[in-house]
């Protein structure tokens, strides 16, 4: 069932219909339907192994669905040829759970890589300016010549986000942005996500099981239960539901947000 966004005039940038994906005979996504509008920030909650990361990998074309459709900016992702897919991917930023920085490259080279690869004729000065701009945006300009191994977990996350921002994406996909971080660093990452949403005008899909992250970064929240989305709502309304899986998820976070 497509989500009710409360603003039907907005352009739908991600439209998912009856999406199914299974691994080794186990259905992970079992008929997912959702619309995400331009400028919307949706958090997808769910327990580990429920297919949250699979969903954003299908949206970015890293995984192929078994059935159903995923349209991004009106284009059906798994029907695109490689050049068309690569063009579409320039509009999608993907922040990986473990940052996925290239170990053999410095921070500068990590950030230059997507820019130089996608815009081969770009001038060196423009590359330098872009790298410094995104590093300033994430507050880590001083790490420009460091190697990923020299960075802390929070810094790696920030650099990972900076690497996606360098192509100025219209959609940001965050895979567990606060996983493995201490509470203070998690709040810093949440603030960064909010900052990115405002400064870069992105539409965000945030995969998380961190309620603080969902509450502070998302306009709407949903949960993946048995391969399907529960209806979306804002954080407070979503957790007013008496659905057992929602209650359990909320109660086990031990924090009362009300």
């Amino acid at each position: 069932m497509p989500a009710e966004t409360g603003n039907n005039k907005k352009e739908v940038v991600i439209a998912i219909r009856q999406l199914k994906k299974s691994f080794n005979g186990r259905a992970v996504l079992n008929g997912v339907d959702i619309d995400i509008c331009r400028g919307e920030n949706l958090a997808v909650l769910g327990r580990s192994g429920t297919g949250k990361s699979v969903l954003i990998k299908i949206i970015s074309g890293l995984l192929k669905p078994d059935s159903g459709t995923v349209k991004v900016f009106g284009k059906e992702v798994d029907k695109l040829n490689l050049p068309a897919l690569q063009e579409l991917r320039q509009k999608i930023g993907f922040s990986f759970q473990n940052s996925a920085l290239y170990d053999s490259m410095s921070v500068r080279e990590n950030l230059e890589f997507p820019l130089v690869r996608n815009r081969p004729k770009i001038k060196k000065k423009e590359v330098n300016d872009a790298v410094e701009r995104v590093l300033t945006d994430v507050g880590l300009l001083k790490t420009i010549d460091q190697m990923p191994a020299e960075l802390s977990g929070g810094q790696r996350k920030r650099i990972g986000i900076a690497r996606t921002l360098i192509l100025q994406p219209e959609i940001m996909l965050y895979d567990e942005p606060t996983a493995g971080l201490d509470p203070i660093t998690s709040i810093e990452i949440n603030n960064l996500i909010n900052q990115v949403q405002h400064e870069y005008n992105t539409t965000s899909l945030i995969i998380t099981h961190d309620l603080t992250c969902a509450k502070t970064t998302a306009d709407t929240v949903t949960m993946l239960v048995e391969g399907k989305f529960l209806p979306t709502a804002n954080f407070e309304k979503f957790f007013e539901r008496q659905d057992e899986s929602v209650r359990t998820f909320y109660d086990y976070n031990f924090i009362n947000y009300k």
Binding site: E87, R89, A100, L101, Y102, N118
Partner: peptide, 16 residues
Amino acid sequence: MKVTEQIDAMEVSGTN
């Protein structure tokens, strides 16, 4: 690179 998703990161950033 594969197990730390660096290959996926390369792919989504527009590099084959």
